[in-house]
């Protein structure tokens, strides 16, 4: 049943793609930070000598990262409305979520419902990945071995599911769980790109863990790209 649904969905999307030449429209934009950047905070890794030894310099707190060009990193941008009634198959390739240098890499990540979420421990210390998701089943996994990997999935969309490490209280990350693939996370220059969005009218939402959310209405035309989208958060 599930398989046939998937096939059906694939066929539908293929048919849709054929009839709409502007299928490959991508929405680009960036997230600006208005005002003076606050002094970056650092985290104290002294509680676990293994972590402390990994870094020579104090590690920044990733709650709010303002890039040098006054843009924001780690903002989750996704299509909030406009895709109702459409289904999208979850990709088989996993989203990677690494525990590296006693940080979660990436700090903000998106995944589709049912898509494998591969959790990796690249550190030689014990981490536990404690999912505090409200919509999906929670998990709390101990990962004592360097290089070990565990695959998990999320069952329902949720903006955002928090994941934390109880052993290292500074370690937490957010997972945006969606029923479609149209999301992006802003990078070191504050830019993001959502690819392959079919023509239509949408609401885009940008989420930042301490500053909240902003929304923008966009229209993807039948041909050509959409004008760049600008989000702006104040301090």
């Amino acid at each position: 049943m599930k398989q046939s649904l998937k096939t059906f969905a694939l066929l539908m999307t293929a048919a849709y793609a054929l009839s709409h030449p502007a299928w490959a429209a991508s929405v680009k934009g960036s997230v600006a930070f208005a005002g003076a950047a606050p002094a970056p905070k650092t985290v104290n890794m002294a509680a676990d000598p293994t972590c402390a030894a990994l870094h020579k310099t104090p590690q920044p707190d990733e709650d709010l990262v303002v890039n040098s060009n006054n843009t924001l990193k780690n903002v989750f941008v996704y299509v909030k409305t406009g895709l109702e009634g459409k289904t999208f198959p979850a990709p088989a390739e996993p989203v990677s979520f690494d525990q590296n240098g006693c940080h979660y890499v990436p700090h903000v990540v998106g995944v589709m419902v049912g898509q494998p979420f591969q959790i990796i421990n690249s550190d030689s210390t014990l981490h536990n990945v404690h999912s505090l998701a409200k919509e999906s089943k929670q998990f709390n996994l101990g990962m004592p071995i360097k290089g070990m990997k565990i695959k998990k999935t999320f069952e329902k969309p949720e903006i955002m599911a928090k994941v934390k490490c109880d052993v290292h209280p500074w370690m937490h990350a957010y997972v945006g769980v969606l029923s479609h693939p149209f999301y992006a996370v802003s990078g070191d220059d504050g830019s993001f790109e959502i690819k392959d969005l079919p023509p239509g009218k949408y609401t885009l939402e940008a989420w930042q863990e301490t500053l909240g959310t902003k929304t923008v209405e966009i229209t993807v035309p039948d041909s050509g790209d959409t004008a760049p989208v600008q989000f702006s958060f104040g301090s």
């Binding site: 404690h130 929670q138 998990f139 709390n140 996994l141 070990m148």
Partner: peptide, 22 residues
């Protein structure tokens, strides 16, 4: 599976889905 015995516990499970990392 500690979560089954006491939901929400800080104790992580080391044998997810009955598989061992070792």
């Amino acid at each position: 599976d500690p979560q089954v015995v006491m939901p929400g516990t800080m104790m992580p499970g080391f044998f997810p889905d009955g598989a061992s990392p070792l």
